[in-house]
Write a protein that binds this DNA or RNA. Structure first.
Lengths: 186, 186
DNA sequence: GTCTATAATATGATAGAC
DNA sequence: GTCTATCATATTATAGAC
């Protein structure tokens, strides 16, 4: 893995574990094994790092959602995979998704980063809305009245579930929070 | 208002707007109008401030929930008031609830503060579970199968709704996220 | 691309006068 | 209870050698 990628991986994990304002170039320096000054060659400012982190995260996450849509045949199976994707990314309760972390720190970012956060939400909602539309056709999720509203509720519940599980450090709290939604899968 | 209370109010707003690691004693100093050193008289360390912030927030929030339970006769009306309480506290999309903010920064806190965060969640869940039990009796919310599960989902959705609305700065996103739940109120 | 060295500023925190 | 003065350390960031 090249240095820049190693820095991004390290920064993403730290941001998701601690929050964006609770890690520094000094932390990255220790983890990756290059000097602080060298990090500025790859990311001149921390704002640049934030932008690249969020772009990479969004692209990677959306690619995995496309993967789910391609692999799982029913809406119910896709929803199950969607939750599993988030749960696996929580690292046992030690971190939240980058978008959750960045949403709380939104005042620390400039407009381009904020746009990326909102784009993450928008693309997630579009994917979920398509999922609930499919559910109306294939009947694999019960009680879908308005796919757009189910999508918005589903995104909120999966983000909130992470917060509760992060605070307790117990993934059982993540499962508990999504249970009423999971129960709707036939 | 005495100085200590002014400091708590200021710190709470800053923590909810920016995150706990993104405000300093210097910020408090400017807002309240006393020197940095004087703040340490009231809160020797920032950890002390965090603990007092979370205790005060939890007590105040739970008192307002008790208020809702005493005032609103039906479970449906109580749920509506619960959401309204959160929405009003978002200050037009400029901040989230202290518990959401602190949950992301959980690694910055010592055990007493983490306990307070989890106690906030536990007491919220107990209150919501009682609400959904009432709903089963008074029929003011449809589709309640397991009050504990509805409570867990409800807490997650209201926390996640804040994240989405904070990122966009638009309270319409908060309303959109809670809509499927609100629709269940008869 | 990475290093050493350094800058300018911010941080949480303490000592002691008033 | 608030102040001035100070501390040790951490922060983001830059200049210039290799």
């Amino acid at each position: 893995m090249d240095t820049k990628t190693a820095l991004l991986e390290s920064a993403e994990r730290l941001a998701r574990q601690r929050g964006f304002d609770a890690f520094s170039y000094a932390d990255l320096s220790k983890e990756v094994g290059i000097r602080k000054a060298s990090i500025h060659h790859h990311f001149p400012t921390k704002a640049d790092l934030a932008a690249e982190l969020m772009i990479r995260y969004r692209e990677s996450f959306m690619a995995s959602l496309d993967d789910i849509a391609r692999t799982e045949p029913t809406a119910g199976a896709q929803l199950t995979a969607y939750f599993a994707r988030y749960k696996a990314a929580m690292n046992g309760g030690a971190q939240v998704c980058l978008c959750v972390s960045f949403s709380v720190s939104v005042s620390s970012f400039d407009a381009p980063v904020v746009r990326q956060i909102n784009r993450f939400h928008a693309e997630s909602l579009a994917w979920l809305e398509r999922l609930f539309e499919l559910a109306q056709r294939d009947g694999s999720i019960v009680g879908v009245v308005d796919p757009a509203e189910d999508a918005q509720a589903c995104l909120a519940v999966v983000e909130g579930a992470q917060l509760v599980a992060r605070a307790s450090g117990d993934l059982a709290d993540f499962d508990a929070a999504i249970r009423t939604t999971v129960r709707r899968v036939v």
